[in-house]
C-alpha cells in the first residue's frame, strides 16, 4: 500500500515477538499505526490479536511466564528498552473485553482512579478532568446526578464499558487500545461504543481488536489481519475487505475458515 502523505505514525512496531512460556504467540510483527486514526486488528481466535495490543502497553508481561522481544515506539516513547512498564501504561489507555469498573468505587472515583492513585491530588482539576472524560465517553448526561452516589458496578453493561473508556481517557493518553470492547455488549450498546470510537479518533490513535468484521469495516481506516501469530496483511480497511492481496485474508473475510 502507499502511505498517505502527511499522515503521522502513532505507533511503530518492529520485529515484535511474544511468548507464553515456550509457546510463541507472536512472530516478527512489524507495522506502523497511523496517529489519530482507528486501526482494527482482526483474525480468528487464538491468532494473537489480543496479545499484540497487550504488547503495545506492556500488559502482556503481567501474565506469568510471558516474554516479549522487539521494538515498539509510541511517538518518541520507547515502549521497551529500559522504559518502566508503569510509565508506558500511564500514557496508553486500555479498554478490556469485559467492562471492569472498580466495584467498591463510585463513578467519580472510578474515573479519577488513574490520576489519584498515581499521586495527582488537585481537587478542582480532578473534577474538571472527570467531567470532561465522562463527556468524551458520552456518559455524562446519563449519570451526572449519581456521580458520587452510585457504584461503578451498578451501571448497565454498556454504561460500564463507557465508564471504563472515560477512566482510560482521564489519564490523558495519546493512544487508546481496545481489546474487543463490544464483545460482551448488546447491539445497541455496541452501536454507542462505535459512535464513540468515531469521535475519539479525532484526538486519539486507536487500535481496536475485534472478531466482528463488520465492526472493523465501520470504525477503522486501517485493518490488520492476524493468523497464527503472524501479521498476514495490513492495509486500508476498504482494500482488505474488497481486494485483499493475500489468499488467506480473502478466505477469512469471506468466511471460508476461522
Amino acid at each position: 500500500m502507499t502511505p498517505e502523505p502527511g499522515t503521522e505514525i502513532g505507533i511503530q512496531v518492529e520485529n515484535l515477538n511474544a511468548w507464553f512460556g515456550k509457546t510463541q504467540a507472536l512472530q516478527d510483527i512489524s507495522m506502523n499505526v497511523a496517529a489519530k486514526h482507528a486501526t482494527a486488528i482482526i483474525g480468528p481466535s487464538g491468532c494473537g490479536k489480543s496479545t499484540f495490543v497487550r504488547c503495545l502497553n506492556r500488559m502482556h508481561e503481567t501474565v506469568r511466564d510471558a516474554r516479549v522481544m522487539g521494538r515498539v515506539r509510541i511517538g518518541e516513547l520507547e515502549v521497551y528498552n529500559g522504559t518502566p512498564a508503569v510509565y508506558v501504561r500511564r500514557h496508553v489507555g486500555m479498554v478490556f473485553q469485559k467492562a471492569n469498573p472498580f466495584p467498591t468505587m463510585s463513578i467519580y472515583d472510578n474515573v479519577a482512579a488513574g490520576l489519584r492513585l498515581n499521586g495527582f491530588s488537585d481537587r478542582r482539576k480532578l473534577d474538571e478532568i472527570v467531567e470532561n472524560s465522562l463527556k468524551m465517553s458520552v456518559l455524562w448526561d446519563e449519570i451526572k446526578g449519581d456521580l458520587r452516589k452510585k457504584s461503578g458496578a451498578s451501571l448497565s453493561g454498556g454504561q460500564q464499558q463507557r465508564l471504563c473508556i472515560a477512566r482510560a481517557l482521564a489519564v490523558e493518553p495519546q493512544v487508546l487500545l481496545m481489546d474487543e470492547p463490544c464483545s460482551a455488549l448488546d447491539p445497541i450498546s455496541s452501536g454507542k461504543i462505535e459512535d464513540l470510537i468515531f469521535q475519539l479518533k479525532e484526538h486519539y490513535t486507536i487500535v481496536i481488536v475485534t472478531h466482528n468484521m463488520q465492526q472493523a469495516a465501520r470504525v477503522a481506516e486501517y485493518t490488520g489481519f492476524f493468523l497464527l501469530g503472524r501479521l498476514i496483511e495490513f492495509d486500508k480497511t476498504e482494500k482488505i475487505f474488497t481486494t485483499p492481496s493475500e489468499k488467506r485474508t480473502e478466505d477469512y473475510i469471506t468466511g471460508r475458515f476461522g
Binding site: 518492529e14 516478527d28 496517529a35
Partner: peptide, 21 residues
Amino acid sequence: PGMTGPKPVAGPQLAGQTSWA
C-alpha cells in the same frame, strides 16, 4: 524504518515532529 522480518508491512509515514510527544 529498516524493517526486517518476514513480512514488513508499511503503514503511514512517521511525521517529522510528533506534535504530542
